[in-house]
Simulated assay, not measured.
Amino acid sequence: MKILAFDTSMSSPGVVILEVKRNKPTILAVSHVKTDARQPHGLRAEIVEAWATVFIARHGTDYDVIIREDFQGRSSRQNHPVFSAWGAIDQALNKFGLNFTHPTISQSKVKRLVVGKGKAEKDEVEAAVRRLTGYIGEFATDDESDAVAVALAWAIDNGLIKR
């Protein structure tokens, strides 16, 4: 089972390919991109799309699950950048005939399933990700470990692995 999961934002989205074999999750690839907040949203969205396109081109299109974390901002000012990044990743996936295969998963559900509580700090999420995967490599940003947490949450919720 191969899971492609995104932690989507305009400033620094993250992505992971997580493979689950015999109830054991393994990180195959992880990445992120940083955009410059001084640039217009349109340009930043194009940068996110280009990054996602290159990641998919480099790692192939054979995924059983493609998922992303949900986002619910309080205002259009919060929502616009994130949903622009969502659209950019949608466009990258569509270039390869791919689309999200499952509904989004909420931030609190990701934390509850992976960490064991609905409110968790970034370091707690990373520690849980490392414990579940045995990953000893570097996460360049929290967005990378958050993307892994999204994939793990889906796998836990669907009975592929146990927390």
Results as ranks from 00 to 15, higher is better:
V115Q: 06
L18R: 03
T53N: 09
Q78W: 05
E69A: 12
G159A: 10
G60C: 12
K34H: 13
W51C: 04
K21V: 09
K122L: 08
T141P: 03
L160C: 00
E19K: 15
S9F: 01
P40N: 15
Q107N: 12
V110S: 05
V148A: 07
A5Y: 06
E138W: 12
M1Y: 02
F100N: 07
G159L: 08
L132V: 01
K109M: 10
D62A: 12
E138S: 15
E49G: 08
A5G: 10
A140W: 04
V15K: 05
K122G: 08
T133Q: 03
R163S: 12
T101D: 09
F6W: 09
G97L: 08
N99S: 15
G42K: 14
D70I: 02
D7P: 00
D143I: 05
I67K: 02
V33Q: 07
K21F: 10
P81I: 01
V129G: 01
L98E: 04
R74H: 12
K24T: 05
W86S: 00
G73S: 10
T141M: 06
T133P: 01
T141N: 11
K117T: 10
G60K: 14
G14D: 06
A88M: 08
F83I: 10
N23F: 15
K109G: 00
A37P: 03
S12I: 05
T61G: 03
A29P: 08
G73D: 07
I66E: 03
E121P: 00
V65E: 07
W51D: 01
D62K: 14
F96L: 14
A88R: 08
Q39K: 15
G137C: 13
V48T: 08
S9N: 11
N158D: 07
A57C: 10
V48S: 06
A45E: 06
G42S: 09
R163Q: 14
L43A: 11
H59S: 09
A151W: 01
I89R: 06
K162H: 12
W51N: 03
K24W: 13
G87N: 13
K21Q: 13
I67E: 02
M10A: 07
Y135P: 00
V65Q: 06
T8G: 04
T133R: 05
Q72D: 12
F71M: 10
L28W: 09
D90Q: 12
E138V: 13
D7M: 14
A155P: 07
T8W: 02
F6Y: 11
Q107M: 10
S76M: 14
A50D: 08
R38W: 01
H32T: 08
A140I: 02
R130N: 07
T133V: 09
K117Y: 12
V150N: 02
E69R: 11
D62Q: 11
D64M: 15
D62Y: 06
V54T: 12
I66P: 00
R58M: 02
T61Q: 14
L28F: 11
I105V: 14
K119Q: 10
D146V: 02
T53H: 15
Y63F: 12
A151H: 01
R163C: 05
R112G: 05
Q39V: 02
W51V: 01
T61W: 02
F96Q: 09
E121L: 08
